[in-house]
Amino acid sequence: MRQFPADTNDLFLPQGCFMMKTADACIYPYPVGNTTLRRLADELERRGFNGAVAVGIPAGCTVGNVRFLSGAEITANSVKSCRDALRNAPKADIVMVHAGDAALNRTILGNVSLHILRGIYHTDKRAFDHVSARMAADRGVAVDIDLSRIIRESGPRRQRALERYREIGRLSQKYEFMLTISSGGHSLTDLRSTRAFSLLGKVAGLDEEQVCEALATPAALMSPARAAEVIG
């Protein structure tokens, strides 16, 4: 089994903290899901992860060798409602906003301080174009590849998700914005290994390097350089 800290850089971090080199960008522990944080930590470690963004936990914490960041997930249909939701949401390490149509995505990327843009799979074909891609790259916003859409869905819904993800992968290579990969797991049975992430990422049109970078993105989003950034 992999020992921590695995990198010399990790030695400079406080005890109990280490770099998240492989992190699942969105999971839902109990009470939203049906698996407790401790059990998820066990399972994530077995599957090759050392971090995750957990939606619904009050604050970031470390359980065993797994670092959990708290995440807030926001669904809004206008910038105003998005800002209101952000104001009312409990304080979280990672703010994730669900994507909408092209105009909303551009406005959100330009005016709201967020970390991850989620839910690209259910948007319109032109919802995330080269303009949004450039804005995401400039603002340091990551776009999430939710593997649960490939795992759970089938038929036209899965095809649509794969089509979007392939387009996102292509835009990411061109405009160099960050990607994250998540299992969107509500349960122990929804989690997948890093190897499965890589294989499913390949199906979604991502190469090995993109998957590796995407797994390390949650840590990059928490870096001090990004925290100092002022948006709006």
Partner: peptide, 23 residues
């Protein structure tokens, strides 16, 4: 084998019982 492993990652339930397969 890689294709079969990818398929195993997409198995979510067997006869209605939720299950995950990890090669």
């Amino acid at each position: 084998e890689p294709d079969v492993e990818t398929v195993l990652a997409t198995v979510t339930n067997v006869e209605g019982a939720p299950v995950a397969l990890h090669p």
